[in-house]
Simulated scan of single mutants.
Amino acid sequence: MTTQNIAFVAADTEEAQAARQRLAARYPSTDPENADVIVALGGDGFMIETLHRSIKRGVPIYGMNCGTVGFLMNQYDESDLPARLAVAQVARLHPLAMTARTIEGKTVRALALNEVSLLRETRQAAKIGIRIDGVVRMPELVCDGVLVATPAGSSAYNLSAHGPILPIGSNVLALTPISAFRPRRWRGALLPHSAEITFVIHESAKRPVSAVADYTEVRNIAEVRVREDRGTVLNLLFDPAHNLEERILMEQFQA
């Protein structure tokens, strides 16, 4: 791929900012608006922020880990960066589009690269009805919450909630309950990527629920619709030996 114009962006940490200064001194660089590729320095959270900022352009993002988990990042290495970028493999991702309506009637739209999660706001469990493509599949889920995860996000919050890890390119979404009380044995579902999921909040005033799409939170919701946005493509770059598909496969064999 073309790496003529590289932009370096960094998380607001001492480690990431120092790395950005060293790389900018070593390699010619430009600003993100004119870059052919953006090198993001930080952790997974900063990668998500960088992807959101570049959604309109779709410029490829190559992350180097200067954070903690770094699941979406490559190993930090300052040497031969143009050569690494030239052979990097592209993982093309589609975000989730969330449309949330509050009990006051306000509508909020947001995109999520990892998951859209619904979470109870108080000590009382949430009561949530679930429709898939207009068909009621779960009349009432009593729970702490429920989430819809993309394959790229399936190893994050979804995995912590005991949801399945989804291979990249599987064309499915994970629908996963969070601490389900009734039905107690329901463990979620795998849905085709074309499905539209609608969550209806029962007793929304008494049992308030918030909806979160990555870092966009909407409180006191009445209804949420979630679907995959196939019109939006995000491009992540990975070193060939540690591409995203391989990382997700390896995650399934972790103890």
Rank of each mutant, 00 (worst) to 15 (best):
M1P: 06
T2Y: 06
T3K: 04
T3C: 11
T3N: 10
A7H: 04
D12M: 08
T13A: 08
T13I: 10
E14S: 12
Q17R: 14
Q17I: 05
Y27C: 08
D31Y: 06
D31T: 14
D31L: 12
P32T: 10
P32Y: 06
A35K: 03
V37W: 03
V37A: 07
I38W: 03
V39K: 02
V39F: 08
L41H: 05
F46A: 02
M47A: 10
M47P: 03
E49H: 13
L51K: 02
L51P: 01
S54Y: 02
R57P: 04
R57W: 02
R57Q: 13
G58S: 12
P60Q: 05
V69I: 13
G70I: 02
L72G: 08
M73A: 13
N74A: 02
A83N: 07
A86R: 13
V87F: 07
A88I: 06
A88V: 09
V90T: 14
R92V: 15
L93N: 06
L93Q: 08
L93C: 10
M98E: 07
A100P: 11
T102V: 13
I103Q: 03
E104W: 03
E104C: 06
K106S: 12
T107F: 04
V108T: 15
R109G: 11
A112K: 02
N114Q: 08
S117F: 01
L118M: 11
E121T: 01
Q124H: 10
I128Q: 09
I128R: 14
G129F: 04
G129I: 09
D133G: 10
V142Q: 07
V142C: 03
C143Q: 05
G145P: 02
G145R: 01
L147W: 01
V148T: 13
V148S: 03
A156H: 00
S160P: 03
A161F: 00
H162T: 10
G163A: 02
I165R: 00
P167Q: 01
I168F: 00
I168P: 00
N171Q: 14
N171M: 07
V172Q: 12
A174E: 04
S179H: 06
A180P: 15
F181A: 07
P183T: 05
W186H: 09
R187N: 11
L190V: 08
H193A: 15
S194M: 11
A195Y: 04
A195I: 08
F199S: 08
F199M: 12
V200L: 12
I201D: 09
E203S: 15
A205Y: 13
P208G: 12
V209T: 14
S210D: 00
D214F: 09
E217T: 13
R219Q: 13
R219G: 03
N220T: 06
N220K: 11
A222N: 09
A222S: 15
R225P: 01
R225M: 03
V226H: 00
E228D: 02
E228S: 08
V233C: 07
L234R: 13
N235G: 04
N235H: 14
D239A: 11
A241N: 07
H242T: 15
L244A: 08
E245A: 15
I248C: 03
M250A: 15
E251S: 15
F253I: 13
